[in-house]
Computed example of a mutant assay.
Amino acid sequence: MSALDLCRLAGTVFLAVTLVVTGDTCGKLLTQSGVDPFIVAWTRFAIAALVLWPLARMQWQELGPMKDWRVILRTVFIAGGISSILTALETEPIANVFGAFFIGPIISYMLAVIFLKERPSATHTVLLAVGFFGVLLVVKPGFGMTTGTLFALLAGTFYGCYLFMTKLLAGAMRPTRLLMSQLLIGTVLLTPFGLSSPMPVNETGVWLLIIASALTSAAGNYLLVIANRTADASLVAPLVYTQLISATVLGVVVFGDWPDTIAFAGLFLIAASGLGSLATRRSP
């Protein structure tokens, strides 16, 4: 891949993750105003499914493979991750939540080593260890860890399992079908929770935020699908760490949340781990 192509890919991924963080910023505004996190998660899946269905160009007969237990379990993980991260955002700064959330790639790495017998390079292992140390600085286990931080770690754990299941299904389903499967199955899974939660009534601002949260998140995930279709996932994955930049900026601009010195150091290490991984993959 040429330097120009890499710059285009980086720009696409950065736009994608910024849209995802924007969706979570809307989600934080909603949960802080009293909207149940399950309502936000449920509507995010449902609205995104409606909007992206025409773009995915799926036929009804393509829904058959969604009965695969691996596809369903993968969706359970991402639905649990989104619900958990929205719960964490009720009380925690966005940057800190995403810092804790990045335990996900480490979980995925461990599962791949245990179940798929993968043997990553020593350099990759060291970089992941650096990222894990950064996560520890953000969450401060035993030194001020909060309930919100625990939910962020739970979200990251769910996400790591989701990444592992995605790797298991690689090649079995095209990316757009995988995306639509998680949206459709996620909508069904979260419907009982969404319907049992109090819905906002006659609150135009709330519904606008719900729609914005769903659409920006859907657009971000769709761009990530496009990025993964044009480049190897191993090249795209490290670029996702730029999400920390968007999370920090939006946290400061929208909520005035500055990470403390220790958390900021942790965020820096996490980002350095991701970008270092990108550099090693670019090496001949």
Rank of each mutant, 00 (worst) to 15 (best):
E92K: 10
P105H: 07
I270C: 05
L116W: 07
I47T: 10
A112L: 12
S196T: 12
G148V: 02
T242H: 08
C161K: 04
K140P: 05
S246T: 02
S234L: 01
L154W: 02
F255H: 10
G99Q: 04
K167T: 12
M199S: 05
T22P: 06
A233E: 01
D232T: 13
M165P: 03
P54L: 07
M173V: 10
S277P: 02
E118N: 01
A56S: 11
L179I: 14
T216L: 06
A3Y: 09
V252S: 10
A112C: 02
P93V: 05
L189R: 09
Y109D: 13
M199C: 01
F14D: 07
Y109V: 13
K140Q: 13
T261M: 12
L128C: 13
D36Q: 03
R229G: 02
P192I: 04
L163R: 08
T191Q: 09
L55W: 14
G194A: 08
S196F: 05
A49W: 04
N202F: 14
A271G: 14
F14L: 13
Y109R: 08
V201C: 00
S83A: 12
R119K: 14
L29Q: 14
T191F: 11
A3R: 15
W207I: 09
R70P: 07
F133W: 13
F143G: 12
M180K: 01
L9V: 05
M145L: 02
Y109W: 12
I210V: 05
K67P: 13
T75S: 04
L267D: 03
P54A: 11
L178T: 15
E118K: 06
A214M: 06
M58E: 11
A155V: 01
K28G: 05
I245E: 07
D5H: 14
D260C: 10
G34C: 12
V249M: 04
T166P: 09
S121Q: 03
T248N: 07
